[in-house]
Amino acid sequence: MDELIDRCETNQVKHMMQLIEPQFQRDFISLLPKEVLMGHDGHVITCLQVSGDLIVSGSDDNTLKVWSAVTGQCVRTLLGHTGGVWCSQMSVATVISGSTDRTLRVWNAESGECVHTLYGHTSTVRCMHLHGNRVVSGSRDTTLRVWDVVTGQCVHVLTGHVAAVRCVQYDGRRVVSGGYDYMVKIWDPETQTCLHTLEGHTNRVYSLQFDGVYVVSGSLDTSIRVWDVETGGCVHKLTGHQSLTSGMELRDNLLVSGNADSTVRVWDVRTGQCLHTLQGPNRHQSAVTCLQFCRGLVLSSSDDGTVKLWDLRTGAWIRDLVSLQSQGSGGVVWRIRASDTRLVCAAGSRNGTEETKLLLLDFEPEERGGDE
C-alpha cells in the first residue's frame, strides 16, 4: 500500500510539472546578453542579490557594489567592511552584509549609507537569512544572532553548536541552522531555546532548506536528509550524490540539489524519490556552484564556467546560457540570480584566466514573435 501511495504522489508531482506554462521556456531560450558589468577586479564575488532594477554584489575585496540593471552601471560602492564580505541579504533597497571582520552592516542601497554596524560576533559571519525586519546570522564563533535591522539591535543569541555555523534559514517563527559539528538545530528564537538537535550526518552540514514543514540538510557526507520540523525525526535519507551538496532549493515538495560531483538532482521530498539526475552528454564538467528554480526550469552554474538551463519535468538539458571563454581552464560562474525577466551571473576565475564580472541577460516578452 505504501508503494502505491508513493507512486500516486510521484505521478501528481509529474502532472503538476506538465501544467507549467511552456511559453516561459521559449522566452528563456531567447535570452540574449545585454550587459557585461566589470568590477571587483581580480577578486571573487562571494554573494549576489537582486531587487527590482538593483543588483548588489559582495566580494572578498571587502566591498559591495550596487549596479543598475537598466544602465549596467555601478552606481555606488559600499565601503566600510575591513574584511571580505561572505554573505548578504536584500529586501527592496535594504542590504545586509556579513564579513570576516566579525560584523554585519545594514545599508541603504539607493543612498549608499551604512545605516547600522552590528557588533557581537567574535569571528567571521558566514551565513544569514532575512525575514521581515529581522535577520539571523551564523558565525564561525558557533553562535547565531537575531538582529532587528531597523534599530540595529541584537535581540536574541542562540548558543548550542560546538563548531562553526555554516547555513541558516528563518521563516519568522523558527530558525534552522547547520554546522561543522555535523548537527542541524531547530530553534525558537523568542525563547532562545533549541527545540530539536537533528543527528545523523557524519560530516559537516553546508546547506539547508526549510519550508515550515520539512527541513532539508546537505552535507559533506554526500547525503541529503529530510527532517520533520515538528518532531525532529528524519523522514528520508536521500542518497545518490557522490560529494558535497553545496546548494539546494525547495518548493512545493520538489527539491533541487547541486553537488560538487558536477550533477544536479531533482527529488520529491515526500517520498524521498529522485525524479531526475541532470547530467548526460551536456552535463557540467565540474562542481555545481549555484542553482535556482525558474517556474518549470532549473538554472545551474558551475566551476566549469557555464550556466545551464534544464527542463524540470523531463530532466533534459535545454541549452547553455553562459559559456565563458576560459571555461575548462579556470573560468568560474560563482553565483546566479534570476527573475521572470532577467538573469544575473557573477563570473571570474581563480587563476587570472577570466576577468571578474557580472553578466546580465535579459529578455522582453512583448518583443516576441507571433503566437505559437
Results as ranks from 00 to 15, higher is better:
Gly328Asp: 06
Ser257His: 04
Asp27His: 14
Ser68His: 05
Val155His: 07
Ser326Asn: 07
Gln242Pro: 00
Val332Ala: 00
Cys74Thr: 05
Lys308Tyr: 02
Ala338Cys: 14
Thr277Tyr: 03
Leu195Glu: 12
His276Cys: 08
Ala93Pro: 00
Ile5Thr: 13
Trp187Pro: 06
Ala93Ser: 14
Val135Tyr: 05
Trp317Met: 02
Val226Met: 04
Asp268Thr: 06
His201Phe: 08
Arg368Thr: 10
Val266Cys: 06
Ser111Trp: 06
Gln285Tyr: 01
Cys87Pro: 12
Asp101Ala: 13
Arg368Asn: 09
Gln325Ala: 13
Met248Arg: 05
Ser262Leu: 02
Asp60Cys: 14
Val168Leu: 11
Leu321Arg: 00
Gln192Asn: 13
Pro189Val: 04
Ala338Pro: 00
Gly138Thr: 07
Ile45Pro: 09
Thr271Phe: 04
Cys274Leu: 12
Cys154Met: 05
Ala69Gln: 06
Ala163Phe: 04
Gly218Asp: 00
Cys194Asn: 09
Val307Pro: 00
Ile186Arg: 05
Gln153Met: 13
Asp61Glu: 10
Leu275Lys: 09
Trp67Ser: 07
Arg270Trp: 06
Ala287Val: 10
Met183Asn: 11
Gly160Asn: 07
Val333Phe: 03
Val135His: 03
Glu35Met: 12
Ser30Gly: 13
Thr77Glu: 14
Gly258Ile: 10
Gln273His: 12
Lys65Met: 15
Asn259Ser: 15
Val106Leu: 08
Ser219Phe: 03
Cys345His: 04
Leu195Gly: 04
Gly98His: 12
His131Trp: 12
Val66Thr: 12
His15Asn: 12
Asp188Asn: 15
Phe210Gly: 05
Gly52Ile: 11
Leu79Arg: 15
Arg225Lys: 15
His236Tyr: 03
Val344Phe: 00
Glu366Asn: 10
Gln73Ala: 15
Ser262Arg: 10
Val115Met: 13
Val176Leu: 13
Leu104Tyr: 08
Val136Phe: 09
Asp2Thr: 14
Thr193Val: 12
Asp303Arg: 12
Asp181Phe: 10
Lys237Tyr: 01
Gly200Pro: 03
Ala260Ser: 15
Gly330Ala: 06
Gly72His: 08
Ser207Arg: 00
Asn62Tyr: 07
Leu244Ala: 07
Val184His: 07
Val205Ala: 07
Trp227Glu: 03
